[in-house]
Every structure is written in C-alpha cells, then in structure tokens.
C-alpha cells in the first residue's frame, strides 16, 4: 500500500490582494514601452483590473508569472466581453450669442465610443496566495482588428478557453497552437456571444393536414363535384 501525505492542519495564510498600482508600476518599469492602465471596479468586490496593450501583453504576462514577488502561476479563468459602439449623450453648458446677448445655454452633446472586444484573464498565485488579478486586453475594433496575442504559451489553461472566445466572440489569437471552433461546429459562420448576434432564420415549415390545408382540400373536392 502507498503512503499518503497530508497537509498540516491549522490556519493557512488568507488570500492576499495585491495593490494594482504596485503591479502597474513594476510592469511599466520592467517592460519598456508597455502601456498599462488600471480599470477601476466600483462594485463592493473591488477587483480592479489591469489593462495591457496587445503588443506587450505576452511580455507582461511572462513578467507576472515569473517575477518572484508576484508569481501569478495559475490562470484560472479566461473569458471575452463584447462592447459594441455606444452613444452617450451628456448635457454641456455652452456660451452662445442670442439676439446679441451672450447667454449660457444647455446643449446635448453626443459622443460615440467605438466598439471593441475585450479578453479578461483571472490570475491567481498558488505560491504567494495572491489573487484574483483580472488582466485585460482589448481589440482595435469588432470587424477587422480582432487580433490579440495568445497567452497559451504562458498559461496552458488558456488553450480551450481562448478557443471558446474565438468561437463565440470572434477574437483571433495569434500564436495559439490549435485555434479552431470548440463548441459550435466548424461550418458555423457567426459568433453567438456578440451582443448584436442575430439567430439565422433556419426554421423549417412542414405542412400538415389542418386549417388552411384542409380548407384547400375541401375547396378542391367541391369544385370536382360540380363538374
């Protein structure tokens, strides 16, 4: 029979949350040209995330995984979010000349935020008991510029989950070892998890003998009888 090792009983250190500003500044220092923003989270969970630019994402991910004080070795969850173009209107006070007198007038100004796709990685550290740290990347738009670097070379767990994002959101991960559809079938064309997805009109009508069919049959029979 085999021997079984067991972890020691007692209290293990509680999960620590690291200050996102510290991680941001160490990332900017370590990787030249890397743009990192903090995306604040207003909810009580206070899980603020780091937004890295796509060009330096792979280096940033490697830094997060390999730096001894961080060691985010466990990439738990990978998912996509679709943000279509939004129109926001805000009231702005503008000074205008009305009948020769300068007056303050309220004007509604519309601003359009261009749409993009976002990929979120939830990182934990087994060794340092850190986490969760959401790491985000954004595509340029939702049509042609949907390329992002794959982080599967850093965390193997992203393999199936990036395939799922490719399948359901349409993000193309450059450097993924096996980028195919995973849940939908290969000949499927659209991306169902996008907000503006429209289901294909593939309803098949099968006529059965009732209502108008019966009526037409009756009509046909009476005409035949009159003749």
């Amino acid at each position: 029979m085999r021997r079984w090792s067991r972890s020691r009983p007692g209290k293990s250190p509680r999960q620590v949350r690291m200050n996102p500003e510290t991680i941001q500044s160490s990332l900017v220092d370590a990787i030249p040209g890397c743009r990192v923003e903090i995306v604040a989270n207003a909810s009580p969970s206070a899980q603020h995330s780091l937004l890295v630019d796509a060009d330096h994402a792979l280096a940033a991910a490697r830094f997060l995984r390999d730096t001894p004080v961080l060691r985010f070795d466990f990439c738990s969850n990978v998912t996509g979010v679709d943000w279509p173009a939004r129109e926001t209107s805000a009231k702005v006070k503008v000074k205008k000349l009305l009948d020769g007198v300068e007056k303050e007038v309220e004007e509604v100004r519309k601003t359009t935020t261009p749409g993009y796709l976002e990929v979120v990685y939830h990182l934990y550290s087994h060794q340092n008991k850190l986490g969760p740290l959401p790491l985000r990347m954004r595509t340029q738009d939702r049509e042609a510029g949907v390329h992002l670097p794959s982080l599967t070379p850093i965390w193997r767990s992203a393999e199936f989950q990036e395939r799922e994002i490719f399948d359901l959101f349409g993000v193309i991960f450059d450097g993924h070892p096996d980028l195919r559809r995973i849940l939908m079938w290969d000949s499927f064309v659209d991306h169902p998890m996008r907000r503006d997805y429209v289901e294909p009109d593939d309803f098949e009508y099968e006529p059965t003998a009732h209502d108008e069919v019966l009526q037409r049959a009756k009509q046909h029979l009476t005409q035949a009888g009159a003749r």
Binding site: N41, A42, S43, P44, S45, S76, N77, P134
Partner: peptide, 20 residues
C-alpha cells in the same frame, strides 16, 4: 446591482467553479 464586476469561486466537487 450597481455597475461593476466580480469573480467568485468555490471548491466544487469537480474543482474550481467560478462565476464572473
């Protein structure tokens, strides 16, 4: 709920079950 986001996970019998 107010705008924001949250990721929570538990030790389900199969492993880490999380909701985002």
């Amino acid at each position: 709920p107010k705008p924001g986001e949250a990721y929570a996970r538990i030790e389900s019998p199969k492993g880490e079950l999380g909701f985002y």
